[in-house]
């Protein structure tokens, strides 16, 4: 508990120390200062000073909440053209469509997820080996393109549009579901010729990227802007981030648990 007549910074220091002492007595993370996340979740320990902890946790979360920050639901940073975004949104919706068991990729915001990803390390392949020379690999050698994912998706969307215009004289986003599926199936089967070296890009590999990104978009933590309202998790009965299952792990009953995001 903070003592009276203390300066703000002293108080902050005191708070940190008491938390560290607490952690020492429980034997967890002896090295430093830990946020509220862990403390709430420790089950199976002898927790003296719980009161102290819960006030700490509360004050910390109110400290870090910044009022007035509004992220527009439909805000984008990567896709500058509306039409491109509509195409990718429509394609993702066919991969994971709205149905009687729950929302589809569109409602879950999977395309907004991809928008954020393509603007960052994933889109730039920053943690991947991108030195040449580039050759088309065998099926077992994996990603060999000279393009990064941001470029690959841009190209893939262009090819979806070309294919759609050739076959139906419409934008991919405006096609009937069945027509969209027909094109996507040909992409999946690598039957669409991109008319560029296969070492650069293929329809088949673009489809794989698209499918993988869709699943990531519907099931990743909502902090990444997909899985809206945790609808993907609710549908799959995945409880997201729970601190501990120690008290439930030996239960013979199925546990339907309200999901929690990583930053709840």
């Amino acid at each position: 508990m903070p003592k009276k007549n203390m300066g703000v910074s002293e108080m902050a220091k005191e708070k940190q120390f008491s938390r560290r002492d607490f952690l020492k007595t429980t034997g967890v993370a002896t090295g430093g200062i830990i946020g509220g996340s862990l403390l709430g979740g420790l089950i199976g320990f002898n927790m003296d000073g719980t009161e102290n902890t819960s006030t700490d946790t509360k004050s910390e979360s109110s400290e870090s909440s910044s009022e007035g920050l509004i992220i527009p639901e439909k805000g984008r940073i990567f896709f500058s053209k509306d039409e491109d975004f509509k195409v990718i949104e429509a394609a993702m919706e066919r991969i994971f469509p709205d149905s009687d068991i729950g929302p589809g990729a569109k409602e879950l915001g999977a395309a907004y997820f991809l928008d954020g990803q393509l603007a960052g390390a994933y889109g730039n392949n920053s943690r991947e080996y991108m030195q040449g020379p580039f050759y088309e690999g065998t099926a077992t050698q994996g990603y060999q393109s000279n393009l990064n994912r941001a470029e690959y998706f841009t190209l893939g969307i262009r090819k979806l549009q070309e294919e759609s215009n050739d076959r139906f004289e419409k934008s991919f986003a405006e096609l009937e579901a069945g027509e969209q599926d027909e094109i996507l199936k040909d992409f999946e089967d690598d039957k669409v010729d991109f008319d560029i070296p296969r070492s650069t890009a293929t329809a088949g590999y673009f489809f794989q990227l698209l499918r993988e990104a869709t699943l990531e978009g519907v099931y990743s933590d909502p902090i990444y802007r997909g899985n809206r309202n945790m609808g993907g998790w609710k549908m799959k009965q995945f409880p997201g981030h729970q601190h501990s299952y120690l008290n439930l792990i030996d239960s013979d009953e199925f546990q339907d648990i309200e999901p929690m995001p990583n930053f709840g």
Partner: peptide, 17 residues
Amino acid sequence: DTNDYQRVHDELKYAQR
């Protein structure tokens, strides 16, 4: 160390990326 892992329940970041 353990202080780095307080927000580790993130499938995308750790298992996919």
